[in-house]
Amino acid sequence: MLYALCFLLFMIGLYCAVVKKNMVKIVFGIMIMEYAVNLFLIMLGYHFGGVAPIIDKSQFDPGTGQIAGSFLNNSVDPLPQALVLTAIVIGLGSLALMISICIRTYEKYGTFDITQIRRLKG
């Protein structure tokens, strides 16, 4: 059910990117899709009663080098977290690129409306 809600969020972003005329609204739609994908990947690694994948000092035995079973059995999946960590920063970079394209287009045509831009191109 939570996965379905996440997919609904993705679909809202897709609707915004496909239907809207305003250029900045299209950028917002792409951002909403990014949030939905990040949330879905993190949700996929979660399980009930999980702990964060960071080992505490009390869970480590320095004599034998063993990690406590409470961490080994309960830790959430660290792999999606590592993937999403890079994806968030890439999202900020691509957002800056899209916004700079929007600003340059506004300066050229004086509007954010993509149908107007198509007409002016001739």
Partner: peptide
């Protein structure tokens, strides 16, 4: 790398002023 590049983006975005003569 991340700090310098994000600072660079904000600096470039705030340096940019729309050219009035084109409008």
């Amino acid at each position: 790398k991340v700090g310098a590049s994000l600072f660079l983006i904000i600096l470039v975005l705030s340096t940019f002023r729309p050219d009035v003569s084109v409008k």
